[in-house]
């Protein structure tokens, strides 16, 4: 796909790769099958990645148009009863303040590989192989 704003391209392979990583992030934050996840992003590659990731994590996508004003955002956020929202918009974060949203995940966090707790157990002698990937986070 092509982002009409920036002209940047996202290939199918990149989309698969990014949404897979994003799925991991959502699962780590406790998204379970059947959970509603709010997505409040401008139209573009990130929106596509987020949507695919929510579906792969078994969640229900509840998109909210990024252009709405804070009051109307708040109404939709409240109505969704969602526990998690994917957004970068300060307006959306404010609107979620009095809602049931527990966590707001930014696009950057969705793409990042946060340091996972390195618990080495007998059955998992390698630990989680994430350390090298996360230095820049």
């Amino acid at each position: 796909m092509v982002d009409s704003g920036t002209g940047l391209c996202l290939t199918e392979g990149q989309l698969d790769e990014r949404s897979a990583a994003a799925t991991v992030q959502l699962r780590r934050r406790g998204v379970r099958a059947g959970d509603t996840v709010l997505i409040c992003l401008t139209v573009g590659p990130d929106l596509l990645v987020a949507t695919d990731a929510v579906i792969a994590a078994g969640g229900i996508v509840w998109p909210v148009p990024a252009e709405l004003d804070e009051g109307r955002l708040r109404d939709r956020i409240m109505a969704s009863r969602a526990r998690l929202m994917i957004s970068d918009l300060p307006r959306a974060m404010n609107a979620a303040r009095e809602s049931w949203v527990r966590m707001v995940v930014s696009v950057a966090e969705l793409h990042s590989y946060p340091v996972s707790r390195e618990r080495r157990t007998e059955s998992d002698p390698t630990g989680r192989r994430t350390k090298g990937d996360c230095e820049g986070v």
Binding site: D16, S19, A20, A21, R27, A57, S116, D133
Partner: peptide
């Protein structure tokens, strides 16, 4: 494709990986 994505998410969770490339 959605099913594939879900399988991949499961594999990553089991192996503790964070990308398809891994």
């Amino acid at each position: 494709p959605a099913t594939v994505a879900r399988h991949i998410a499961n594999i990553m969770e089991k192996l503790g990986y964070t990308s398809r490339a891994q």
